[in-house]
Simulated assay, not measured.
Amino acid sequence: MYLLELGGENEAFALQEAASAAADVRPIAPGLALANAVSPERVRGLAYTHRASDLVGRTDADPESAQALLEAASLDSDREGTIAVRATDVHGSTGVSTERVERALGRVLVDRGFSVDLDEPDHVLRATFSEGRVPTVDDGRGDRVSVCALGWLAAESVRDFGTRAPTDKPFFQPGSMDPLLARAIANVAGARPKATILDPMCGTGGVLVEAGLVGADVIGTDAQWKMTNGACENLEHFLEVDAPSPAGVERGSWAVGRGDATRLPLADDAVDGVVFDAPYGRQSKIDSHRLEDLVAGALSEARRVASRAVVVADRSWASEAREAGWELEASFERRVHRSLTRYVLVLSGDEA
């Protein structure tokens, strides 16, 4: 069993992304979830899960209960080397003194024969405290809980997204998606080594960059030469590097060309997942009827070439997605600012 430490403002969306790297994900408290299994390599590439730890146990959210849990735990006899304890109070919700917790649990481990190294430990024991309503994958809230969970750190996500801020890329256009969201929707769409991800409205290529950095091969099209040329510039800059990506995998290959999202030059079921950021009505130069035809056509073509898709837009295109043959797996709303809310639709097709 593994403990996941979530991040981001929308925990339901974080749970959706976490499921791309873990099995049977279920929330237990604000910012915390459990999973039956995880892929450490894929956890490194998550945007809204910060850490995965091999669960020792969970108890009430107070230092005394945490200490009693660790004292009673059966610790791995083969966990050799030095240790350190890191405690976190999620959102400051419990008010526990994390320093006090770290000292108390450290003493327990020393008494059990471990050596402490606070700077470069071989193993880290995570102690996470959280109190509040349990988040759910449908954006609802369950019962109020107070939880402390202990676990040995197994994997951490690589927090390098600031190095790919839209304005710092070789090619930039206003309205470009931030790399955190781009990584998350790429993961939800199925980006991983040996998978192929398509963005038929690729713009500056931000989603393709993030999908490629977690090992997926990526294909992009856009109706404007300016965008395809700029996307090529960004993809070449970030993916054609002779070194493993920060996520610890080989970067994926890429191909970008000018094309029509409603008439893709691809065979049926040619890709594993489709992602696109639909034109926003008030910001787009496309009139409303043409926009509806474009998105409906893109949804239909996406269904032809893949069995999974993630669509981002300034409105919900759920009815159009269903008409195109998609099942709505999940839907999220992400407020950008007062006049813009992003809708994220997770779509799945009938494998039969």
Rank of each mutant, 00 (worst) to 15 (best):
D139S: 15
V147G: 12
G106H: 12
V209F: 03
L328H: 07
V209G: 01
D111G: 02
V110I: 04
T88Q: 08
E11Q: 15
R107D: 08
R107H: 11
R86A: 01
R107A: 04
L328K: 01
E99A: 00
L235Y: 09
G215Y: 09
R44F: 08
R335W: 02
E99C: 00
G151V: 00
R42K: 09
F13K: 12
V344Q: 01
C148M: 01
S115C: 11
N36K: 15
V124C: 03
V275F: 05
A73I: 03
P121A: 05
Y280I: 03
F161S: 15
V25I: 03
V101W: 02
I28Q: 14
A66L: 06
M1R: 09
D222Y: 07
D54I: 04
G252I: 07
G81Q: 08
R79N: 14
S331W: 01
G215P: 06
A127R: 06
F332T: 05
F276T: 03
T167K: 10
L118Y: 02
D260H: 11
E41I: 03
R308E: 07
L291I: 01
E323R: 12
D277V: 03
R303S: 06
P63L: 02
Q224W: 13
G325L: 09
T88V: 03
E233H: 05
D269G: 11
E99I: 03
G281D: 10
S288V: 12
T341E: 07
A324Y: 03
L198M: 10
D314E: 01
T98W: 05
E327D: 14
A12Q: 10
D54S: 06
E292K: 03
E233W: 14
